[in-house]
C-alpha cells in the first residue's frame, strides 16, 4: 500500500467517525452529550479538511499512483 492510499484510508475513517458522531447526536437526548458531540465533530471536521488538502498534495506529487 502506498502512503497515498494509507492516508486515503485514514480520510475515510475520519468521514465514518463524523457520521457516527452525527448518528449519536441524533439519537441522544442528553444535553451534555449533545454539546460535547458538537465540539468533537467540529474538531474532526477540521482534521478531515486538513487531511483532504494533504491528499490533493500527495496526488499532485505522484500522479502515477493516483487512484
Amino acid at each position: 500500500m502506498t502512503v497515498g492510499s494509507q492516508v486515503k484510508t485514514c480520510y475515510a475513517t475520519l468521514k465514518s467517525i463524523e457520521a457516527g458522531l452525527d448518528l449519536l447526536q441524533a439519537s441522544t437526548t442528553e444535553q451534555g452529550l449533545k454539546t460535547t458531540i458538537d465540539e468533537t465533530s467540529r474538531l474532526i471536521k477540521i482534521a478531515r479538511q486538513d487531511i483532504h488538502q494533504q491528499i490533493i498534495h500527495i496526488d499532485k506529487q505522484e500522479p502515477q499512483y493516483k487512484s
Binding site: L21, E39, A47, Q53
Partner: peptide
C-alpha cells in the same frame, strides 16, 4: 507538521468523548 497537528486534534476528540 500537518499530521502532528491533526493527530493532536484526534487525541483531544478522544479525550472528550
Amino acid at each position: 507538521e500537518l499530521y502532528d497537528r491533526n493527530q493532536k486534534r484526534l487525541q483531544e476528540a478522544v479525550r472528550r468523548m
